[in-house]
Structure formats: C-alpha cells, structure tokens
Amino acid sequence: MHQRQQTTSLLYSLLNWLLIAVVTVVPGLTLADSFHTRLHQKADNAFYTADIIAEMQFGKKVAARILGQETLHENTQLTRYINLIGKTLVLHSKRNELEFHFAVLNNPQANAYATPGGYIFITKGAIEAANNEAELAAILAHEIAHVTERHIVNQLNITGTEQAHIAGLVRFLGASGNTAQVTLTQSVDQAVSLLFETGYKIDDELEADFVAMILLAETGYDPLALKQYLLRLPEQADPMAKQPQTHPTNAQRFTQLNTLIETEKLQTLNFPQLRERFLKNTTLKR
C-alpha cells in the first residue's frame, strides 16, 4: 500500500513537470516564431515596393489635378531655390526612397499642399509671408511631414497590395475596367477634396508640426521658425481654420509647439535662419 502511494505521488510529480513543460515551452516557441515572422515581413522590401509604386502613381495624379486648378509660377531661380531647401530637408527625413518635387504656385493666398509620393506645392503668397529661409523651410518641412507620415495614404488606404478595403491600387492602375477606373478617380477626388476643402485630421496636422520641428532641427535650421511663421500668419488666412470642428486652431498648435520647444530645449539651439540668402533668392520680396 505504502509503495502504491509512492508510485502515485511520483506519477503526479511527472505529470506536473510535463504540464510545466507544455505551459512554458509551447507559448515560448509560438512567441519566438511570430517574432521572427514579423521581422521577416518587415525586411521584405518587395512588399513595400508595391505600396510605394502605388503611392507615387496616385500622388502623380493628385499633383496633376492640383496643377489643373492652380497655375505654376515659372521663375527658375525661385523654383530652384525652393527645390534646394526641400531636397536638403528630405535628405534628413526618413523617406529617401521617394523623389520629391517642389513647385511654386501663382496664388497670392498663403498656402501649401503635399501629395502622396512627394509633390510639394507652395504658393507665392506663402513665400511672401515668410521672413527668412528657416521659415520657408518650416512650411516645406510641414508638408514633407504629411508625406513621410503617409497621412493621405493611410486615410484613403492607398496600397499596392490586396489589403485595402478597396482592391489594391496597382490593380486599378493596371486595370482597364470602368469600375476600377471610377474607384481610382474617386480616390483621387477624395485626396483633392481633402487638400482643398476638408483638410487633414487634427492629429495629422499636429503630427506634421511635430515632425517638421524635429526635421528643421535635424537639418540645422532654427526650429522655432515654424512658430514664428504661424504667429505672423493671420489665422483667417489659414484655410484649415474654416473647419474648427475637425482641424486644430492656432492655439492648439502653439500649445503643442511650446511643449516641444520646452522639453527639447529648442530655444537654446541658436541655429541659423538665413535671411540674407532668402532675400537674394526670393525676388518676390523686393
């Protein structure tokens, strides 16, 4: 009897250790496996290439649409200067795989637009409202941030794969069917409407400000230039202010900018604003 109890106890002990092994090793293996799977997926550039191609092709159509509504300001020196500032900022941003293009629009109202894929438009009015190169860089940095953070791409679910709620954009672009073309046209319509009428989401605007400040500091421009420019620009001149329900007011933007300036001690940087080079290259100021 005594021996039987010992055997039972030993059996329980063995079962216990078997349970421990199952409880610890199996989840461990599963975790490790999923971890490596995620890494593998992230390293798969081919997966991303389809998305980037879709974004670029989509952005090109949106850019053409903007140019259908606005006229180009064809001043070679100014356009080249804007491109030099823009390219310098892009070199310090995280999306070097895109070929960014910068253009000046012949519009006296202060405004700027960015399309997916890296087409950035700035109006003559926005340049005239700037005081130095750092402020001009701040406007461009804000627009570049909308592209690097893929705000329109995420909002409209533009992708080259089949994961979109609508079918992959590459399929639209390659497709000849009317339905596909209508869907593509509708997506471009939505992007144009977002840029000209409804505006970005409040969080996207605030994120673009945040990324722009960091981008200015990383490039070496005075990051406070963004706040200076916004302070000078009357809020009513900002088309986003027309939708106070869904878009940040200047007060909200300043609150965030001030927090960032304080926490990162950006006021101590003493980075250049480059007024002279700005005046030399922007004949608009004369």
């Binding site: 053409a64 649409r65 140019l67 259908g68 080249r80 070199l91 293009h101 910068f102």
Partner: peptide, 27 residues
Amino acid sequence: DLENGDYDALEKVESITIEEAEAWKFH
C-alpha cells in the same frame, strides 16, 4: 469639373531635379 489634371505643368515640375551633392553643398 476640375479633374483633368495638367500633365504638361507636371512635366515641368518633374524636370527640375537637384543632385544630392548639390543639395549637400547648399546645406
């Protein structure tokens, strides 16, 4: 109503390219 994009203007925009070395010099 405004949907026909201006691809000629877009070509002009795309024709301006800045080499990386040029941008670093500017920087």
